[in-house]
């Protein structure tokens, strides 16, 4: 059996276990490639009916407009219910301070909004597109990951996962994060997208953009990121290898306008996915571990 078939089947099995074990699951959907793959798999799995749980997006207010446009069109095409909750509302509600600086990332604040949404809708399981190959802390997380009411991940107290049996038992106040594509690599995702003919937001392909240099990365200018004195503003042909917020995602110089060309570039790349594109992981060695302990995906 082909490796993509094996991975797809594993993901379907996990989603079916979520549908079977939880009363109020949600699928975290951002319009990024990993969550698009999740939604695609879910829609295939449950045919002829629509996905029996809603898609949930935590809108940071810093999202790329192309990703939001795609989010709305894609979920409408699936006939799925899309719920959007806004980080700006959480900032107001909890009196949080806006991030400052040249790259004011609201990435860490998403956790508040997610927890609020979990409480508002009573979600007992949130399906996410995290992969173990992305980052060292993620390599250690279980597929069914129990979080307490603060969303905290306790790496030393994880449930052993045996065979393909998933223990979804949780207490009131806890919720489960579930990662069906844990065992996929970045290239598996791209190969699957090509095989299945899945559409992606336009920013995954090379286009012209005004950028400034940040170390060895390119950050696009936009209403949040303004060039300062000393910045050289250039027009470059770029694409996005990952799609996070405009304030924390760097672009990659690229000529790739087709899926084949994108895959060829990624195959030839000597830098990791997050290393090339996420400026928020560079803060410390344990940046992701710390964010996850604070309720992050």
């Amino acid at each position: 059996m082909n490796h993509l078939d094996t991975l797809e089947r594993e993901a379907m099995h996990i989603m079916l276990e979520v549908a079977g074990q939880f009363a109020q699951p949600a699928l975290l959907f951002s319009g990024g490639k990993d969550s698009i793959v999740l939604a695609h798999i879910a829609s295939k799995l449950f045919r002829p009916s629509v996905i029996p749980f809603p898609l949930l997006h935590i809108d940071t207010g810093h999202n790329f407009p192309e990703a939001l446009f795609f989010r709305d069109a894609y979920s409408a095409g699936l006939g799925a219910r899309l719920i959007v909750r806004y980080v700006s509302d959480s900032i107001e509600k909890h009196g949080l301070s806006e991030p400052q600086g040249k790259f004011p990332s609201r990435n860490g604040l998403q956790s508040y909004t997610l927890l609020d949404a979990i409480e508002e809708f009573g979600f007992d399981a949130c399906i996410g597109g995290a992969r173990r190959d992305e980052e060292k802390a993620r390599a250690k997380e279980r597929i069914f990951s129990v979080r307490d009411e603060f969303g905290t991940w306790d790496p030393k107290n994880q449930r052993p996962e045996l065979w393909n049996i998933y223990n979804g038992h949780i207490a009131r106040g806890q919720n489960m994060r579930v990662f069906p594509i844990s065992n996929w690599t970045e290239l598996d995702v791209w190969h699957y997208i090509r095989r299945e003919g899945i559409e992606l937001p336009s920013i995954y392909f090379a286009h012209e953009r005004e950028v400034i240099r940040l170390g060895n990365r390119w950050m696009a200018t936009n209403r949040f990121i303004q060039p300062e004195a000393g910045d050289t503003v250039l027009r470059k042909k770029v694409r996005y290898r990952t799609v996070g917020d405009m304030t924390c995602t760097a672009a990659v110089e690229s000529e790739a306008t087709t899926l084949d060309a994108v895959i060829a570039e990624i195959q030839a790349s000597t830098i990791s996915e997050r290393g090339e594109t996420r400026i928020d992981d560079q803060i410390s060695e344990a940046a992701m571990e710390d964010r996850k302990k604070n309720g992050y995906f």
Partner: peptide
Amino acid sequence: DVAYKYFSTPKRK
């Protein structure tokens, strides 16, 4: 804890 790692060759993942 158990850590999962991935690599592939032209023959296998």
